[in-house]
């Protein structure tokens, strides 16, 4: 039974990594900054798979990107991407998904906790992304936040709102 469960989680984690890769290319043109769906699937990895498998899923996604498969949104692929201006956000996905998974594991599967977990996750992604952007470009903290955080907050709120019903619909499929 343990082996079965592990195999299923392996397959699901790979599927979520593939969805994240597909999400990097899906843009919804609403408002001044279009919403890229990549981080929606990062949130979902944490919510659906839990901390351990969530990290595995995101890790595989990042590794595929590092090898040069075209799975990152915008710009160029490959290892160079981690040193680029958006590298902090990419590396921030790993602790974020771990924390989201941890919070959903420790609490009951309620909407309030899901939203709380995703808000924590976004804060981690932004703190990694913005601090790396600040180090790299040498801008002041306020200016970095204007460039690298404020335009995306509306999109993130919409993604969190979208992740709640999706997680609710998919949990029965994953844990029958």
């Amino acid at each position: 039974m343990i082996a079965t469960k592990q195999l299923r989680m392996t397959v699901y984690a790979s599927l979520l990594a593939a969805l994240t890769a597909a999400g990097a290319y899906l843009t919804i043109p609403i408002g001044p900054v279009p919403i890229v769906l990549q981080s929606l699937f990062i949130f979902l990895s944490g919510l659906l798979l839990g901390s351990r498998w969530g990290v595995a899923s995101v890790g595989v996604y990042l590794l595929a990107g590092a090898l040069g498969l075209p799975v990152f949104a915008g710009g160029v692929g490959g290892i160079g991407r981690f040193a680029g201006p958006t590298g902090g956000y990419l590396l921030g996905f790993l602790p974020a998904v771990y924390v989201i998974g941890l919070i959903t594991e420790k609490t009951r599967k309620r909407v309030v906790f899901d939203v709380f977990a995703m808000v924590c996750g976004s804060i981690i992604i932004y703190s990694c992304g913005v601090s790396w952007l600040k180090i790299l470009t040498g801008m002041t903290l306020t200016k970095t936040m204007v460039v690298g955080m404020y335009p995306f907050i509306l999109g993130d709120a919409l993604k969190i709102a979208a992740a709640v019903p999706i997680a609710k619909a998919l949990r029965p499929v994953i844990n029958p």
Partner: peptide
């Protein structure tokens, strides 16, 4: 071994999703 399996599964899932 596990990472390699997951990687090839991921590549295989992309056409499935589309």
């Amino acid at each position: 071994k596990r990472i390699a399996t997951m990687m090839s599964l991921m590549v295989r899932f992309l056409p499935v999703i589309i």
